[in-house]
Design a protein around this nucleic acid. Structure first.
Length: 499
RNA sequence: GCGCCUGUAGCUCAGCCGGUAGAGCAAUCCCCUUUUAAGGGAGAGGUCGCGCGUUCGAAUCGCGCCAGGCGCACCA
């Protein structure tokens, strides 16, 4: 945001800023660089709070430390300062007995929001607050703009997202969420590398968008003079790597982009983990997923029983498994395993109060009924298995039923958090699946996958049988941090440009 | 894309059956000087999201636009 947008001339904000710019000049007059290069910090706030937790009120020590952080509150004309670093807070006690006249002058120029370093001895005040009795102070960064109010903080949702740095300064919960996000991803990485998976990277710029049913972002490469697509999934490239055989177990954690609606569970760019393992099927993927997610929860939160909103969710494996058709039969009493035609399926859908108008095949009808009748009630973790062939163009046909595929989607709290298959490795079948997608596209399905000739070529060189799994990282983070919106777990969520 | 709600000082909010704006915090100056939402005093700070209309007069009423939230649609 530019200064012009943020501060109209003569506004209160601009006055505050002008006063602080004057303080920069005052500091310069005293020979102080308000933006120096280094500071020798010797302790974190939390470290000291922990180390001196048994120090009695009123006790003084000779132990000297240098701390640094952001000034969050000033009391008694600067005698007491709450200093916050990324670990926590500690109080600074600045008395004229302990500071030079020059230092006292600089103290007067400190504002809430400045980053300052203090050196001094540890004491606990008579009122019980652990403090650094300052013997020197160092301005480390003069802030020019005021922070939100100390009591109510920043609550305006738009400002929180647009100026996330302010949100983070003021709201400890936000900082904590992003630390937890980082830890979750680190633990997933650890889990997979410990199991022998190799982390790889594949292109984000694709000549055509594939690997999922979604509308892509289109961009243009000038020198090549060709349109390119931001990837909607890494899937087809990861399976090319499996053909190549760099490793029999690979994974990628990175961004995908989908040009679709934005809501509490969708951001145009989002983070997915996809993994592939040779010589196993989707059953192994279910086991791997539930073991991985539950152990990550255990490591990050110390428990497998998590709270999300009003729900208590138990991630302890094994998770429930139901076939899609079985789950529908259980919920509605209608058995689609003996229903073979689109017309028959549509008639059954209507009898259940579901409108199947846009469904042009059996599989889509089943999927629609599942979404409307079964999905909303799936709070506890569950693998929904054996999806219809028509809606699963990259999954191997089910070994016992050629109308279905060996595919599952895992749902937690009603959300799809993972999608996995026994990967389709038969190049002849894959070509037919792509052709069926092209037919769907011709019939108006603008999210149908285009045929990827090079991918088929890769399969024609021979891909090992393999299980593959995709997992939405943002949604896992939402669950493990009890965040109601995906924007709470993405540092800088996509927002419309201000005009 | 559709529906509902929101937008007033840097921040958090009043004011909204029309008479051109208030509080607390932050900031400024003074007092106080072992406080912790420190305290006391004084003064300052505003194109009331933007535009057009109705009206003698609009933060307030109407229409349009912008931005955000929630729900629906699409999707992971």
């Amino acid at each position: 945001m530019t200064e012009e947008q943020n501060h109209s001339p003569n506004s209160a904000g601009d006055q505050i800023r002008q006063i602080r710019i004057q303080k920069l000049a005052d500091l310069a007059d005293k020979g102080v660089n308000p933006y120096p290069y280094v500071f020798n910090k010797t302790a974190d706030a939390a470290e000291l709070q922990d180390k001196y937790s048994n120090l009695e009120a009123g006790a003084e020590t000779e132990d000297e430390y240098s701390v640094a952080g952001r000034v969050m509150a000033v009391r008694n004309s600067g005698m007491f300062i709450d200093l916050m670093d990324s670990s926590g807070k500690i109080q600074i006690f600045s008395h004229k007995q302990n500071l030079s006249e020059e230092q006292m002058q600089i103290l007067k120029l400190i504002d809430i929001g400045d980053i300052v370093g203090f050196t001094g001895t540890i004491r606990r005040t008579p009122r019980g607050e652990l403090s650094i009795k300052a013997t020197s102070l160092t301005m480390l960064s003069k802030s020019l703009l005021p922070l939100p109010e100390k009591f109510h903080g920043l609550t305006d949702v738009e400002t929180r997202y647009r100026q996330r740095y302010v949100d983070m300064i003021v709201n400890e919960d936000v900082r904590k969420t992003f630390r937890t996000r980082s830890l979750i991803i680190q633990k997933i990485r650890e889990y997979l590398t410990n199991k022998g998976f190799l982390e790889v990277e594949t292109p984000m710029l694709h000549p055509q968008a594939g690997g999922a049913n979604a509308r892509p972002f289109i961009t243009h490469h000038n020198t090549l003079d060709m349109d390119m697509f931001l990837r909607i999934a890494p899937e087809l490239y990861l399976k090319r790597l499996m053909v190549g055989g760099v490793s029999e177990k690979i994974f990628e954690i990175n961004r995908s982009f989908r040009n679709e609606g934005i809501d509490v569970r969708h951001n145009p760019e989002f983070t997915m983990m996809e993994l592939y393992q040779a010589y196993v099927d989707y059953n192994e993927m279910m086991t791997l997923l539930e073991n991985m997610v539950s152990s990550v929860a255990q490591e990050v939160l110390g428990t497998m029983k998590i709270k999300y909103g009003d729900n208590e969710i138990d991630l302890t494996p094994p998770w429930d498994r139901k076939t899609m058709i079985g789950a529908i039969a259980e919920k509605t009493g209608v058995d689609f395993s003996t229903c073979f035609t689109v017309e028959d399926a549509k008639a059954k859908a209507k009898s259940l109060g579901v409108d199947p108008e846009d469904c042009d095949n059996w599989g889509k009808v089943i999927d629609l009924i599942f979404e409307e009748k079964v999905e909303p009630d799936l709070i506890q973790p569950i693998h929904i298995i054996d999806y219809p062939r028509e809606i699963s163009p990259l999954a191997k046909v089910h070994r016992d039923n050629d109308r279905l595929t060996e595919r599952f989607e895992t749902r937690i709290n009603g959300w799809e958090i993972a999608n996995a298959f026994s990967e389709l490795t038969d190049p002849i079948d894959q070509r037919m699946r792509f052709e069926a997608q092209m037919q769907a596209k011709a019939n108006g399905d603008d999210e149908a996958m285009p045929i990827d000739e090079d991918y088929i070529c890769a399969l024609e060189h021979g891909a090992p049988p393999m299980g593959g799994l995709g997992m939405g990282i943002d949604r896992i983070v939402m669950l493990l941090t009890n965040s109601p919106s995906i924007r709470d777990v993405i540092a800088f969520p996509t927002l419309k440009k201000r005009q």
